[in-house]
Amino acid sequence: MSWDVLLLHLPDDITSAQDIPDDYAPRPLGRLHEVLATVSRAEPEADLSDPTWGDLTGPTWSIELNIGSEDPVDSIMLHIRGSGDDVLASVFRLADAFGCKVLDCPSGDLITPEGPSGWHAFQEFRGRVVGGG
Rank of each mutant, 00 (worst) to 15 (best):
M1W: 02
S2L: 00
S2N: 10
W3N: 03
W3I: 08
W3A: 05
D4G: 02
D4Y: 01
L7H: 00
L8M: 11
L8N: 00
L8W: 01
L10I: 00
P11H: 05
P11D: 05
P11S: 05
P11F: 06
D13V: 09
T15E: 14
S16Y: 05
S16E: 06
S16P: 05
D19E: 11
I20W: 05
I20Q: 07
D22N: 13
Y24M: 14
Y24T: 12
A25D: 12
P28N: 05
L29K: 05
L29Q: 06
R31D: 09
H33P: 12
V35E: 03
A37K: 10
T38R: 10
V39C: 02
R41L: 09
A42G: 05
E43R: 15
P44Q: 09
E45Y: 04
A46K: 11
L48I: 08
S49E: 12
D50A: 06
G54K: 08
G54M: 15
G54A: 10
D55H: 12
D55E: 09
L56F: 08
T57V: 11
W61F: 14
S62T: 14
I63K: 06
E64A: 10
E64I: 03
L65W: 04
N66M: 04
G68S: 04
G68A: 04
S69T: 07
E70R: 15
D71G: 13
P72Y: 07
V73N: 03
D74N: 13
D74R: 12
S75I: 04
I76F: 03
M77E: 13
M77W: 09
L78T: 07
L78Q: 11
H79D: 08
I80D: 09
I80E: 06
I80T: 13
G82Y: 09
G82K: 10
G82L: 10
S83V: 15
G84A: 06
D86Q: 09
D86S: 15
D86H: 10
D86A: 12
V87T: 03
L88R: 04
L88F: 00
S90E: 02
V91M: 00
V91G: 01
R93L: 00
R93E: 01
L94S: 02
L94T: 03
D96Y: 00
D96L: 01
F98G: 01
G99T: 07
C100P: 02
K101T: 06
K101F: 07
V102F: 04
V102K: 01
V102N: 02
C105G: 01
P106L: 09
G108C: 06
G108I: 04
G108K: 09
P113T: 07
E114C: 02
G115E: 12
G115V: 08
P116V: 13
P116D: 15
P116C: 13
P116F: 10
S117K: 05
S117M: 09
G118R: 06
W119S: 03
W119I: 06
H120I: 14
A121E: 15
F122A: 06
F122G: 02
Q123C: 12
Q123N: 11
E124I: 14
R126C: 08
V129R: 12
G131M: 14
G132V: 11
G132E: 09
G132W: 12
